[in-house]
Amino acid sequence: MRVNFTVNGRPQEADDVWEGESLLYVLRERLGLPGSKNACEQGECGSCTVRLDGVPVCSCLVAAGQVEGREVVTVEGLAEYAKQRSRGGSAGTSLDEAQRWAAQGTDSRTGEGTGSSPRAALSSVQQAFIDAGAVQCGFCTPGLLVAADEMLEHNPDPTDADIREALSGNLCRCTGYEKIMDAVRLAAARQGEAV
């Protein structure tokens, strides 16, 4: 079947999709957006977290056909999404930006320039993950970033318990979560300063 939807502000079309494919598979294997990760494919780890019409979901549990006509934001589009948000505009993509994206093209295969090109500066949560040492192997990182960014959007001044609850659907095996806590606290503090 064919599926048309919007990813990171850009219209996408996937052809010859097997009906049992997940949104995660379509993103990774058909659209060249492998940033969302395939750690468990059973909704237990959160590494495939994307925003579907703004809501964080496990993309491994969304059937490809269910996203027809809907908007998806992945880690590849997170920086741009955050930038749009800070401008106060909608998180979508302007026509101008969409055209620039199209002109850049995507070379998913090498992982270069995927989706987010021209690369927006990192979002505050992305930068905080680097600065706080919250990234080790990094396989959980994309999902954590999408979840943490969404939490900070709604709750800019979270308590530690709030952070832990919001990220309780994202497993990390490397860090013991301490540096992830630091990163989210840091991102919240920086966002607070910026306002």
Binding site: N38, L78, G111, L122, Q126, V135, G138
Partner: peptide, 24 residues
Amino acid sequence: STLRPDGTLKVTGEFAYSSDMWHE
């Protein structure tokens, strides 16, 4: 405490893990 050289690629989703490999 220098930062990881692969940090930026890992937070943008561009770091190519073994399961991300793709070939025509």
